Computed example of a mutant assay.
Amino acid sequence: MNYTTWEQRVRKVEPYTPGEQPKTDKVIKLNTNENPFSPSPMVEKVIKEYNEDALRLYPDTRAGLLVDALAKRYGVDSDQVFVGVGSDDVISQTFLTFFNSDKEILFPDITYSFYDVWAELYRIPYRTVPLKDDFTINPDDYKCDNGGIIIPNPNAPTGVLESLDTIEEILKANPTSVVVIDEAYIDFGGTSCLPLIDKYENLLVVQTFSKSRSMAGMRIGFAIGSKKLIKYLSDVKFSVNSYTMNPLSIIGGAAAVEDEEYFQKTTQEIINTREYSKKRLTELGFTFPDSMSNFIFASHKKVPAKEIFTKLKEQGIYVRYWDKPRINNHLRITIGTKENMDKVFEKLAEIVG
């Protein structure tokens, strides 16, 4: 190929579009699934006690304090744990490591919209698999030749949780593919498929501190799997950047993991508010798949989602809306504090009449 300009050599991709970040805190922000509670008080304590002079040194490449805390919490060996700068970093490295063939990787058509971005970025062939009308997965759709599978559970943006039986059915049918289960929202009432990692060497489970541990700003994600999977993943990571985890994230993350009481208390409060919110939304005429996450994917019977989205924003309430096929009449509403949710329901009542 003859190049006539430098731009023809550029790797061009359509980037992921995150939820809008308002330039003021005088809003009710329910558009990016952030936790409404502060991180564990133990996080604040260890950061305040940290010797800032140590910031002149490179961090522990292994992030051993955090890795060991996660291994203890989840009952696995330390060499079964991989950490990264948010689960986005972890999954990006996963795409780069394991999805390395000319066969299409598979993921749902309605799902986390970063997956196709990574596939395009790394030139990985992919095919989106349509969810059923109720937004659930048909496991038979994944019983085919493929180059890998990634499925969020619970799914985003629908909030639908698949059973362990469904996940295992997919695993059984794909012994030659790496199957990644993205469990960013699993702590809000779901059952993790982590117990399956001892049975399936090709299963990688990814989680994050951004949602249930209130640490989106510190960027901590992790994966747990067989020692062989983690070794391959680590080899790729250290070929890109050895020092990805900063020391404050390492010590703060470890402290958050150790404060199990606070973790259980705040996640349960979000679950309780979510169930309350389901009742209130139903009373206002909304329908939605049963959510097991920290958000609800709602559609109104009479008023279009885009109209509701615009009117809420005018009132300083931010929720998420996608103008995409199949989901362009839905809003993803993050679960905030009960006080904030009541303000949302008050405005929704005015909008939908």
Rank of each mutant, 00 (worst) to 15 (best):
R213N: 03
Q264I: 13
P175I: 01
V319D: 05
V46D: 12
S163P: 03
V352Y: 02
P152M: 04
Y16S: 09
I251R: 09
D89Q: 03
A71N: 06
L203C: 10
S291F: 09
S177K: 04
L331I: 12
S192N: 08
E346V: 00
I91A: 02
R127V: 08
G253K: 08
A184L: 06
L229A: 06
Q80Y: 10
I181S: 06
K302N: 11
E52P: 00
V13T: 12
E339D: 15
R56G: 10
N174Y: 03
N155F: 04
E52W: 04
T97L: 02
K228H: 11
I333C: 04
K231I: 00
E307F: 01
M245C: 08
T337C: 14
L121A: 11
V236Y: 05
D141E: 11
P195T: 08
L312R: 01
N202P: 04
V352I: 07
T111S: 14
S192H: 14
V129M: 07
G19K: 01
L248A: 14
G84M: 04
P152V: 00
F288N: 07
I150T: 01
Y74A: 13
G159H: 07
K132E: 14
F98W: 15
G84Y: 01
K306H: 08
F99A: 10
W6H: 05
T61M: 15
I250E: 10
S291I: 09
G316N: 12
R73T: 06
S38W: 12
M42I: 06
I186E: 09
S92L: 04
G217I: 02
K228P: 00
T267D: 06
T5N: 15
E52N: 11
Q93P: 00
K265T: 05
L194G: 05
G86M: 11
K347V: 13
G316W: 02
E34Y: 15
D79L: 05
P36A: 04
P139V: 03
E260P: 07
V160Q: 00
I186S: 09
R320C: 00
Y16M: 02
S38Y: 12
I296E: 03
K12H: 13
K347E: 14
N2W: 01
D140G: 04
A254Q: 10
T24G: 10
N153F: 11
E307Y: 14
F95G: 01
R219D: 11
E49W: 03
L65T: 09
D290F: 05
C144K: 14
I167N: 01
Q80R: 10
P304D: 11
P22V: 07
I28W: 05
K48D: 11
S113Y: 00
G189R: 04
E7L: 15
A349I: 01
H330I: 00
P139G: 07
I333T: 10
S291P: 00
E120L: 07
K343N: 09
K338N: 11
K23W: 03
P36L: 13
A223N: 02
T32K: 13
